[in-house]
Design a protein around this nucleic acid. Structure first.
Lengths: 108, 108
DNA sequence: TGGTCATTTGGCTAAACTTGCAAATAGCAG
DNA sequence: CTGCTATTTGCAAGTTTAGCCAAATGACCA
């Protein structure tokens, strides 16, 4: 694999890696559902330290998945691109397929 | 976030995490393009130790993204679910969006 | 049975990631 | 300016991941 190809896959992996964490996945899902949320609300929903949530948001932001916007004393985050939701649909079908195989193993 | 919700996001994250590596992304792309490949061929294309490639394949397999099949002395891997390709399309649009912002910064 | 080829696994090290606490920042109200 | 609230950053500890080499496994052939 030449350097250019390598670099292209690394760039893609960076974006996917930004989604590869349960908390960040929750955030994306929540932003998709609700449009936007401030850090404090997300922190409350997630139940981790606010500094931890802030770092997850920074990860998503630097990947270009979310954007932030200050309003008053709070900072609101929202999705930058809707299609990240396609991830969920596909992940669900992988899970469903896995479950089916599981089932088949139990039965046989 | 209650335990059940937490578990659901963890399960999803496991699948996405399996794709979150340049080498594994390359493998998925190659399998999508070519249908199937044996470990030796992938190893040759990637240019890493075969043991490393084998572990990446094991990661993809345990997430339910690929399946393996022995034929003769070689083991062939193929995608189990096509929709993982949607990931690429979305990742591309995130990258395109990022590039556009980059551009805007340079111009202004 | 012994040998060979393809693949996986064990062991180890270095690097990356996650997290909470405490301290720093930033905007806002008085 | 001072205090207050929301958010981010520095730091340290613990956990996970990636990679290579060497050894083990598995299928196949002579």
């Amino acid at each position: 694999m030449d350097a250019k190809t390598q670099a292209r896959y690394e760039a893609r992996a960076r974006i996917i890696k930004a989604m590869a964490h349960p908390t960040r996945l929750f955030i994306v899902d929540e932003l998709a559902r609700n449009g936007e949320r401030c850090v404090c609300k997300l922190t409350e929903m997630i139940g981790a330290d606010m500094s931890t949530v802030s770092r997850h948001l920074a990860t998503l932001k630097s990947a270009g998945i979310v954007e932030d916007e200050r309003r008053g004393s709070q900072i609101y985050y929202h999705l930058r691109i809707r299609c990240v939701l396609d991830f969920f649909a596909c992940v669900e079908s992988v899970m469903k397929c896995n479950a089916k195989d599981q089932q088949r193993l139990l039965v046989s």
